[in-house]
Design a protein around this nucleic acid. Structure first.
Lengths: 223, 223
DNA sequence: CGAGACTTTGAGAGCAGTCAAATCCTGTGG
DNA sequence: CCACAGGATTTGACTGCTCTCAAAGTCTCG
């Protein structure tokens, strides 16, 4: 069942369930829109972002197949955009005349899981910590070790990790120089040394000795 | 209904609902424990924290009266501790012989709301941004403008904002010197200039001009 | 092949972390 | 009631990591 998202009438708006397609770069909903539907990613990748008063962008999450976004109470507090071409499964949050939410606990749990993942990333202190943790997460989510895709731009990654795109770029280049990963083009990499990457992320076996932290820093430092 | 939390038998463990008391500093559950119950704060304040492999602590959230924590799927991914003496309302996540979760969508929504608040804080770039946003949040949650309590230590705040306790202390002192807030002892403050604080947080009216950012920096800078 | 966007790299400045020490509080014991 | 011990907080000096500003390089799409 595929219904164009341009339809506006309530019949479609409140259809219990529909599939929606969006092209890369499209906006799915805007920050401040009335929150009437929630989404589950069928294929492709979505990003949610919030625009701050000073003009800078915070990227609150990336959503892959199976992930849930748009579960909000009143207004969407963040925008959702398609990172790649996407297919979404969309359901109403509230039906007309029915004050009960129709989002299942399962959807909420998934949304919570995604939120926790974002919080976890921010627990890492340095740029190397955060980028390493991000790359590991990407590899785990894609399920493959070789040929992991990074479909988002460096700028997206930067706004997600609260760094600048320069720092992200430098750090990724350093990882490649130090043999932790191998880059194949801009948006494709392979992890060469998962243990080393975990140590740089601050999640490694880490003997708790001050020496090992110095070690991790050396690995992550340029040259 | 008050039942001591030291009881271990299943009758209590799976009681549909009970009140629990904890003293300041007590651990409510540990990272890695089997997640069998979730909690709603009746009074007092709770913090959840995750201990990273390198020994540093990430404080994932503060929970006030009405907030929900401990809603997790399998194991608790973070520890929960009492910041002050607390009273909690506790309910089982799963009942024996009943594979369905008993946490209501409402509890999940609250947990999600708390998670979003944490993510929001991290969207702020500088130390001044984050501390200002944190203080505003604290004031809003306490509902009062004057005499806002900061029951957690500077170290707690630092681990929550991903800063050091030194930077937190310096920044708060700067705010006081610049007339944005007034400190009354260590754990009590009053907002003197909410608009100014919002500007420093990067959430102010902010004319979008480069000048205003410089302005905010000056306000936040020492001297 | 060319235009444009995205990415990489470099140099310098500024902000936050580290190390160190002084000061302030709080609870305890005399 | 006061002195004291211990922890928490504040402050200072310095280092180093990340941001800013700038420019060159690379990839993609028409």
């Amino acid at each position: 069942m595929v219904i164009s998202v341009t339809a506006r009438d309530d019949e479609v708006r409140y259809a219990s369930s529909l599939l929606v397609r969006h092209r890369k770069g499209d906006s799915i909903y805007h920050q401040g829109d009335a929150a009437c539907r929630w989404f589950e990613v069928v294929s492709g990748i979505v990003r949610t972002c919030r625009f701050m008063a000073d003009g800078h962008r915070q990227l609150t999450g990336f959503f892959y197949a199976g992930d849930v976004f748009g579960v909000e109470a009143d207004l969407y507090s963040e925008a959702a955009e398609a990172v790649t071409d996407v297919v979404l499964h969309s359901s109403p949050l509230i039906r007309p005349g029915d004050p009960n939410r129709t989002d299942s606990p399962r959807a909420l749990e998934k949304a919570l899981q995604c939120a926790r993942r974002s919080i976890f990333l921010f627990g890492h202190r340095t740029a190397a910590n955060r980028v390493a943790a991000f790359l590991i997460t990407m590899a785990e989510r894609s399920g493959i070790q070789a040929g992991v895709q990074l479909p988002m731009t460096r700028s997206d990654i930067a706004d997600h990790l609260n760094l600048t795109l320069h720092t992200v770029s430098r750090t990724i280049s350093d990882f490649a120089r130090n043999g932790l990963i191998a880059l194949h083009g801009r948006q494709n990499f392979r992890i060469l040394d998962l243990e080393g990457l975990r140590v740089v992320a601050g999640e490694g076996p880490e003997q708790e000795s001050p020496a090992s932290r110095t070690e991790a820093r050396k690995l992550a430092s340029r040259e």
